[in-house]
Structure formats: structure tokens, C-alpha cells
Amino acid sequence: MSEMSKIVRSISNLLLPFILIYGFYIILHGHLTPGGGFQGGAVVASGLVMVLVAYGSERFASWVKEKHLSVLESIGALGFISLAFLGLSTAFFYNFLAGKGGLFGDIPPEGSNPGALNTAGTLPLMNLAVGLKVIAGLASIVLVMGLASHYFKQGGENDT
């Protein structure tokens, strides 16, 4: 994909921080409000895709390497599985931090409450891991498709 006009690039520069902040808000408040790792990761990835469409896939690929994205995705997957294995003293996927005090260990009051961030045990950490995984996965899918579309435009080996 080639670069778009200066108006589009300026507006996407202006909008990118707000989209990133909104996406990370959805990821980090996944245990309190509607949302979670998948939804917030999709929001952040769509912000990155907006930059990709505005600047073209070649310039985007010079800033964000596909290698780095695959490392980020592996970190997300390994964090998710190791959080699941850490509760193995009781059961796989046991929530070993909930109700113990300390990190994310508080119990919210029964019924309707304003919501405290320091609750829910391993759920915020799992949200963060899955959010990293979804950001890296969707961004690398669109990045690879954009690079391949540039290849087809050049002619390539279209031998039919």
C-alpha cells in the first residue's frame, strides 16, 4: 500500500494517542467494566492499522518490525500459559491470587459497588497477556497482507 495524503496522515497522528489510551483502558479495566483483553487488543490493533493505512506498509514496516511483533505475541502466549501453570498446586487455571491480599488480592463488597482496581487475582494479568497477544497477532496479519499487496502491484511472478 502506498502513502496517503498529508491531511490523512496528520489526522491519524492526532487520533493515535487517544485510540491507544482507550484500548489500554479497556484492557486494564477488563475485570470491572465491559471489555477485556480481546476487545481492548482489537481497539489498539485497529489504531496501529490506521497508521499503517495512512503511511503505507513499507514505512510502517520500517518502524514496527514483524520480528518484534512475533516476539511480543510469544511473550503474551507464554505469560498466559505460565499464569495458568502457577496455580497447578490446586488445579490448572486455579486463581491463586484471589482473596489472599497483596497483589490484586482484595475481595470486592457484595452486590453493586463502584469497583476497585486491586481485585480479581490473576484476571488483570491474564487480560494484559491476552491483550499483548491480540495486538501483536492482528497487527502482524494486516502488516503481512499489506506488504504482500505491494508485491502484487509490482508485477511479481504473476505467471498466469
Binding site: T33, P34, F38, G111, S112, N113, P114, G115, V134
Partner: peptide, 30 residues
């Protein structure tokens, strides 16, 4: 209402398990 206790109005809540499975299904669809 939605099954979320943050500032929840009093009353019944809809079932959470079909919503969770729909979330799974949407990601697999993508």
C-alpha cells in the same frame, strides 16, 4: 441487566456463559 457489578442497578442479570462463549466464537471467526 448486564452481568457486571460495577455501579449495577438492582434486579436480575442475564446469563454470562453464552456471552463468554460468543466472545470466544468472535475471535475464532476473525
Amino acid at each position: 441487566y448486564a452481568p457486571i457489578y460495577t455501579h449495577a442497578p438492582s434486579g436480575q442479570m442475564v446469563l454470562p456463559v453464552p456471552q463468554a462463549l460468543t466472545l470466544t466464537s468472535i475471535v475464532i471467526g476473525v
